[in-house]
Nucleic acid binder design. Structure first.
Lengths: 183, 183
DNA sequence: TTTTTGGGTCAGTCTTGTTGACACATTAAA
DNA sequence: TTTAATGTGTCAACAAGACTGACCCAAAAA
């Protein structure tokens, strides 16, 4: 929006360029196409066994945090329990996920993957793993670190907190390009 | 996949680390949360006027390429014409989008935004603009360049070609971290 | 003992995607 | 010029995944 009107052709100009509308519209495009193609692999696999992306999400987050409670899962996914129920119940009935009573609080249902569930999750993961690995390799380590920083920034404070709670600082947060842009 | 089998403890080790499973699972998380929160702003606005994300996509891509044909739009969105019809028809009826016959091929319907459509698109854009700008600022220019490189890599070849056709190399494709990782 | 919490479920609705089948005008080909 | 092929529209039916609202139950907390 604002910004020193003209100033020197370089310097502040870089900042202007950096934030100009076209660059932000490009971000919209990149996120749309990128996310769509990122999910395409697993989606195809899931379709074969009559499941959808929602099932994958459950498998992913339960696999990531075995023993997670239904409530925690709900808060991570940001959906209602009715919505979760429609995918979780079949996953349990079909033997992909198991429930256990909480030891301290017997009302809780602690979720975890069965071997069958782990196997499916792994297949789905492999698809995305290869896809992301290709992108990471082509872009290089510096770019990957930048990608992580920006993606974190695109997350709301809530999601960021959840992620941090779950993973002890996986690499982002330390090195590379401190925000002192302008340069 | 490949990689000089063992070699020195450092060097190739870095590459190994770089691609290890946890880092790729983190990417899954980042994309899920990041994309979700990226779309949250416009979604809220759209809900107020009884529209959805699909309407936004149409406004976005028609705004980006005025005079685009229905067929081109379909191929960009990657959906069926019936799906498109359900959002496009109302947008036309409500005066957000106009159609014109193609000059060369009168079968074509060239789409563009009305002033009303431009206004709505801009409001939606402003939401995302601020959100992305915050993320970009916090991450810094180097990170942004990396973000772009990785997102491009996450796109399928088709989508990448479409994007390139539409925009003449917006900045990514030139400088920064050449893929010669290993270091 | 009463209330709150964690979880489940029934019923109905909405958006956005899908197939399949036609219809119509226009352009290209035989 | 007749005959495809193409670009677009549309009806109908269906599915996934999200939502709201209303209730229910068992266990934990007050």
């Amino acid at each position: 929006m604002s910004d020193t009107p003209d100033s020197k052709p370089m310097g502040a100009g870089r900042q202007l360029l950096f934030l100009r509308e076209e660059e932000l519209r490009l971000a919209q495009d990149l996120l749309f196409f990128g996310y769509r193609d990122f999910t395409a692999g697993p989606d195809a696999l899931l379709a074969e066994i009559n499941m959808g992306r929602a099932h994958h999400r459950v498998l992913h987050f339960v696999g990531r945090r075995p023993g997670i409670t239904v409530g925690e899962l709900l808060s991570i996914l940001g959906i209602t329990k009715q919505s979760l129920g429609r995918v979780l119940t079949p996953l349990i009935e079909d033997g992909y996920v198991v429930q256990a009573h909480g030891r301290n609080d017997r009302r809780q249902r602690l979720l975890s993957l069965t071997p069958k569930g782990q196997e499916l999750e792994r297949k789905l993961f492999e698809r995305q793993r290869e896809w992301v690995m290709r992108a990471y390799r082509e872009a290089g380590p510096v770019a990957v670190e930048g990608f992580r920083r920006v993606m974190r920034g695109l997350m709301g404070a809530e999601a960021r907190a959840q992620l941090d709670r779950a993973e002890p600082a996986q690499g982002t947060g330390l090195p590379i390009g401190p925000s002192r842009s302008v340069a």
